[in-house]
Amino acid sequence: MTLLIVGHRGAMAHAPENSLQSYALAEEVGVDEIELDVRLSKDGELFLLHDATLDRTAGDDAARGLGPAAELTLTQLQAVVLNSGRGVVTLAEMYAATTTFIQLEIKDPATVPALARYFAAHPADAGRTILTSFHPDALRHAAELMPTIGRCIIVQALADAERFEGGWRGLLDHTRATRFACGFQDLTQDVVDALHDLGVEVHVWPCRTVDDVRRAVELGADGTTSDDPAQAMSWLQQVLGERTAAS
């Protein structure tokens, strides 16, 4: 089984997260997928930002203290200077600048109808996208509006999924997820095997050390997400070499 290496917000260890530079660097090092975050502006435009505000990724004081990004128009969002040296990247700009498969995380459930309209108009972009979210109802809504696009439910730990009615199986049924992304905490081989038996891919995160890669491979996970995908790819080759030498 191949372990996919996913660039977290591009290659954010070496370039500003959710920037065109970060996505380009991730593609340059050969990631299998890029994970990024989508939000909706006050005037209904789709753009890429992890946080609810611009404060953490601001490049100068003018970008701080503006309040929720959802309450700003796209013109306002693009006028500020982030740590990338420019304003936010739009969803369309990202797709035009990349060729890699995209994990598109829905940060705000209100984004879902706008995404459905976007992908209806851009089927090629839809064809290289999986929608992800920590919000079960957002993914359920996405399944209803965009049934042909894959879905991934994200949880911090397996215990979070087990708290859903019906446990992790109930969560999968509710979201109609085709992929399950889970933190390493309390994730077991039996659960990974059960998910695979259902035809559900398993991604584990975060990938911060060679031991994380080793654990992902041991579990038989399908992918892992790293801030430094080039390093993660190097670790993967190390781990696979260890397994070959031991066999």
Score class of each variant (00 low, 15 high):
I102E: 00
F184W: 11
G199C: 00
T57Y: 05
G87K: 12
V38F: 00
D193T: 12
T53M: 07
C207S: 04
R128E: 00
E28M: 11
A114K: 14
S247G: 13
E218M: 03
D60N: 13
G183S: 05
T100S: 15
T178E: 07
Q189V: 12
M1L: 15
L158G: 04
L74W: 13
T178I: 08
D32C: 07
L139S: 04
T148A: 14
Q238G: 02
V210D: 04
A161L: 14
V155I: 12
P229V: 00
E144L: 14
W205F: 11
R140H: 15
T148G: 03
R151Y: 11
L236C: 02
E242T: 06
T73M: 09
R140K: 15
R56I: 01
L131D: 07
E218W: 12
L187H: 05
Y23P: 05
E218C: 01
A24T: 12
E165R: 10
R163H: 11
A216M: 13
D55Y: 07
A11T: 04
A121K: 11
S19G: 11
C207Q: 05
P113T: 03
R151T: 11
H50P: 03
Q238I: 08
V112N: 06
H203D: 04
R39Y: 02
M12A: 09
T224I: 08
D55S: 08
G30P: 03
L91M: 09
A15D: 03
F47C: 06
P109T: 10
E45D: 01
L36T: 15
V112K: 08
L54R: 02
W205T: 04
E201Q: 14
E71A: 14
S84I: 08
V202R: 02
Q103H: 15
L104Q: 14
E162P: 08
P136N: 14
F119L: 00
P16T: 02
I149D: 05
V31D: 02
N83V: 09
A79P: 05
F180G: 01
L91K: 06
A181T: 02
P109N: 13
C207N: 05
R208C: 11
L46I: 03
A116E: 05
H203E: 07
A70W: 07
V210A: 11
L74E: 11
T57V: 13
F47R: 03
G199H: 00
R9A: 06
A70N: 10
D227C: 01
N18I: 06
A138D: 03
F184S: 01
A181N: 15
T175I: 08
W205S: 08
L72N: 08
L91Q: 10
Y95K: 14
I34P: 09
D186V: 06
R64M: 12
S19N: 11
L139G: 00
A62I: 03
D125K: 02
T224D: 06
V29G: 00
A143C: 07
L195Q: 13
L54D: 00
G241R: 05
D37I: 01
T129L: 07
L36I: 13
A230C: 04
T111Q: 03
R179G: 08
T90C: 11
R39D: 08
D197L: 10
P147V: 02
V192I: 07
L219Y: 06
E144I: 14
L171G: 06
E144S: 11
L195V: 10
M12Q: 07
G65T: 13
C207V: 10
H174W: 14
